[in-house]
Design a protein around this nucleic acid. Sequence first.
DNA 1: CTGAAAGCGCTTACAG
DNA 2: CTGAAAGCGCTTACAG
Lengths: 339, 339
Amino acid sequence: MATIKDISLRCGVSVSTVSKALNGYQDISEATREMIIKTAHEAGYFPDANVRALKMKKTYNIGVLFSTLTKHGLRNEYFAHILASFKEKAAKRGYDITFIEHNIGNRKMTYLDHCRLRNFDGVFIACAEFTEPEVLELVNSDYPVVTIDHAFNEAISVLSDNVEGMRQLTQYIIDQGHRKIAYIHGTKSSVTHNRLVSFHNVLKENGITVPEEYFVEGIYRSAESSEELALRLLNLPDPPTCIIASDDYAALGVMNTARRMGLKIPEDISVAGYDGISVAQALEPKLTTIKQDTDKIGSEAAKQLINLIENPMSTSLDTIYLKVQLVKGASVRNLNKAD
Amino acid sequence: MATIKDISLRCGVSVSTVSKALNGYQDISEATREMIIKTAHEAGYFPDANVRALKMKKTYNIGVLFSTLTKHGLRNEYFAHILASFKEKAAKRGYDITFIEHNIGNRKMTYLDHCRLRNFDGVFIACAEFTEPEVLELVNSDYPVVTIDHAFNEAISVLSDNVEGMRQLTQYIIDQGHRKIAYIHGTKSSVTHNRLVSFHNVLKENGITVPEEYFVEGIYRSAESSEELALRLLNLPDPPTCIIASDDYAALGVMNTARRMGLKIPEDISVAGYDGISVAQALEPKLTTIKQDTDKIGSEAAKQLINLIENPMSTSLDTIYLKVQLVKGASVRNLNKAD
DNA sequence: CTGAAAGCGCTTACAG
DNA sequence: CTGAAAGCGCTTACAG
């Protein structure tokens, strides 16, 4: 690799002059600047950002925490899409992104250690176990932090409006004439909690009570888990007319069970999901679901984090709720129409 | 952030001693070492890898090219899974990964420029337009390079055995008694070419000829595109009994069209895909497809790249073919049985 | 066993 | 307009 010194020797000027010419300082003659830029280009020279960071105290590199838990991480469409849009926005603003790892090679280290190792300007916690001590350590550190799907006091949080999403979905299903609505919700988390509360509230507002057995806990993203739970629900003496699954993958499981039992969707049983993954819209019938705006979540997270990095004093640690969109699809039957 | 100097002051020793103690040199007394390690730990000190790289000529950072073309990049399950497994393997071997971008902020740069900027130890081209000059520039550079799904002379390539995969799939379909087999293949690329050739060969070996109209070019990963093409195929005077789609998403499109036409799968029309994405296995009927081993592709790519980085002289620039697996599913009807 | 010194590639206040 | 010098945080050959 060519260095600044190589260029200075080739041009017969000092390294200071090369540095200044390349960085657009004004006190360099036009002729010198041109020669230096030309030479640098020919030599394929590009200043080393890591070294530069040593003086500048800024790496222009963001650490992204993306732990690969079961059914999570990059293998999950929801998170992968968020990362894609985060990455694009960050690049536009001049930042690279590097994954934060737990242990790297033989060296044991915490997430925070890894951030110190790489000297990130900020941290994006995209996907993690929020109760883990290491995650908390990171959130409570000096690093600017933005999280997804979970609100902390010490960080900016970007998340879908789950209360509103669940409200829209539930109200839509009720409006279609359903009264016996079951909910296979995900494992406990603040997201799950908010959706459950919202579901409850909408039922209450509409004067609907559903039996306890209609609430069952499944596993996010697991079609197998929801297949089994759906079987139980559909075999109840008084089965629901509609099943809301924790997410679209889980909804697929519900559909499979229904079909295996000889039930048609939505004629015999209605199904709804959550997330709005692309493949659910390629299905027949199209899945009724709530689409989370992954593009917006990712780009908003990047925007907020970079603002926090560049203007810490004028960026408040808010929780930002993003709009969701009801996708009506065709998997929920309209019971009001006689057909 | 604490620096090595802070630790040396706190401990009353020189920075040299701190450095050596922390790096496990043997010529440091046990007592000194312990005190230094303890102090460093208390101060939350972690050496800056970027600075260290300045002396060591090694960043332990791998650049990953993942350009977001249509239906590609992180939003594509196939590539996202490969990246996930690459990332895990790299971390195990002690390497971080950072995305290579085209332009970063306002600065225009080539992929190669970006690599120089970050001083990567090596480059993983996971997903890119292989004919782009910038990609070629990178492949022909001094950097150790590993690619996926495309073979270069100047780099290591890791890819599924497409000839073998297409052979297994086609032969299976023929064994089920099909003779009228259509193929909606993807746009031209070496991968597409190899699959097409293999399809042809297997037909020939089995003494089967299919009409020209059975070969149509679609768009990888596009359900919309294949929906339209399937409609055309199924409306032919002599329609196929089985349609092979370029990939699983495309197969979904074929299924949708068939159902819309009132055809049952596989009773009235058989469908097969390629890739083995997770959601295709949650469908009913389960899709007949070729599963590409994304975990293996990612980890093998990481392994090869790191070997090339660490032992350039004993790692040859081979093309590595990985086994694929026929997933029989239930979307291809057995025409031999009268049922 | 410990430390002073040189150096990695860059930036920038300062002197000329 | 140009350059010598100091310094960013670290490593390591060398001297003691």
